[in-house]
C-alpha cells in the first residue's frame, strides 16, 4: 500500500506536466511541427517501436517483432556504448592500477593525463573521422575516450586510498607483493573503481549520441538528427525519450552490479 502511495506521489509531477502540455497543444497554443502533443509523441513512439514491414515469409515471429526501427537503433547505440566502454575502461584499469601503485610511473604519465583529461571527447570528432573514417570505429574511439578518464582517475585514487591498516595486516600474514596487490589492494579499491565505471558509462552514453550524429546511419543519435531533417518533431521527442529510458536502464544495471560486487561494503546505499 505504501509502495503504491509513493509510486503515485512520484508520478504526480510527470502526469501534471503531460496534462498541461497536452492541453496547451490541443488549444493550439503552438504549432504541432514545433511542439507536438504528448499523445502524438506516444503514438509515434509506438509506431517507431513496432515492425515497419509485415512479417516476411520464413521470418520467425519473434524476429519480426524485434525488427522495428527503435529496437534496432537502441541495440546499435547500446552496442557502441559497450564496445567503446570496454576498450576505454580496459585500457584505463591496468594503467590506473600501476599509476596508483607506483609513484614513479604515476609521475611519468600524470602530466600527459592532466593535459588530455580536460579535452571533451566531442573535440576529438574531426580527428576521429580523419583517423577512422566513417562507421563504428570513430564512435568506438570517442566513447572509449569518454570512458577512459573517469575510470583512470578513480582507479588511481582507489589504489592510493587503500587504508594502511589492511596493508599492515596483510604483510603481517606474510603475503608477497603480487598477492598483496590482487587480494588486498584491488578489492580495497573496488568501491572507487566502480564509481569510476558508473561515471564512465554515463559519459559513454552521452558521447554515443553525439558520435552517431556524425558518422553512422543508425542508432538513437542518428535517428533524432534524421528526424530533424524532415521536421518530425514527434519522432525527435520519441527518440529522446528512448535515450532517457535506455540511459536509465544502463544506470540501473550498473548500480545493481555495484550492489552485488560491493555487498561487503559498509557505506553502501540501498
Amino acid at each position: 500500500m505504501n509502495k503504491l502511495k509513493s509510486l503515485m506521489h512520484g508520478a504526480l509531477a510527470p502526469v501534471l506536466v503531460l496534462l498541461v502540455w497536452e492541453a496547451c497543444a490541443r488549444a493550439g497554443l503552438f504549432s504541432a511541427v514545433v511542439m507536438p502533443a504528448p499523445s502524438a509523441v506516444a503514438a509515434k513512439w509506438w509506431a517507431y517501436l513496432l515492425p515497419a514491414q509485415p512479417q516476411a515469409e520464413g521470418q520467425s515471429y519473434l524476429g519480426w517483432l524485434l525488427s522495428g526501427e527503435l529496437l534496432h537503433d537502441a541495440y546499435s547505440s547500446l552496442y557502441r556504448v559497450i564496445a567503446g566502454f570496454v576498450i576505454g575502461a580496459g585500457l584505463a584499469l591496468p594503467l590506473g592500477l600501476v599509476m596508483g601503485a607506483n609513484t614513479r610511473i604515476h609521475d611519468f604519465f600524470n602530466p600527459l593525463v592532466q593535459i588530455l583529461r580536460p579535452i571533451p571527447p566531442i573535440a576529438y570528432i574531426p580527428l576521429a573521422i580523419l583517423w577512422f573514417g566513417l562507421g563504428n570505429p570513430p564512435s568506438f574511439f570517442l566513447i572509449a575516450i569518454g570512458a577512459f578518464f573517469p575510470v583512470l582517475m578513480n582507479t588511481i585514487a582507489g589504489v592510493r586510498h587503500v587504508d594502511g591498516i589492511y596493508l599492515r595486516a596483510a604483510r603481517n600474514l606474510g603475503v608477497n607483493q603480487l598477492t598483496l596487490f590482487t587480494r588486498v589492494i584491488l578489492p580495497a579499491a573496488t568501491p572507487y573503481i566502480l564509481a569510476g565505471v558508473r561515471i564512465g558509462i554515463g559519459t559513454a552514453f552521452i558521447v554515443v549520441i553525439v558520435s552517431e550524429m556524425i558518422a553512422v546511419n543508425d542508432g538513437l543519435g542518428f535517428r533524432i538528427l534524421e528526424a530533424r531533417e524532415f521536421m518530425w518533431s514527434d519522432k525527435i521527442i520519441a527518440g529522446m525519450i528512448t535515450i532517457g529510458l535506455l540511459g536509465l536502464a544502463i544506470d540501473t544495471a550498473v548500480s545493481r552490479l555495484n550492489n552485488h560486487l560491493l555487498r561487503w561494503h559498509r557505506g553502501l546505499e540501498h
Binding site: 591498516i165 589492511y166 599492515r168 595486516a169 603481517n172 600474514l173 578489492p187 559498509r266
Partner: peptide
C-alpha cells in the same frame, strides 16, 4: 608473529 590490531583490520571484502 601474528598481530591483532585495535581497529580489527579484518578485510571487509
Amino acid at each position: 608473529r601474528g598481530m591483532v590490531f585495535q581497529e580489527y583490520a579484518l578485510f571487509p571484502w
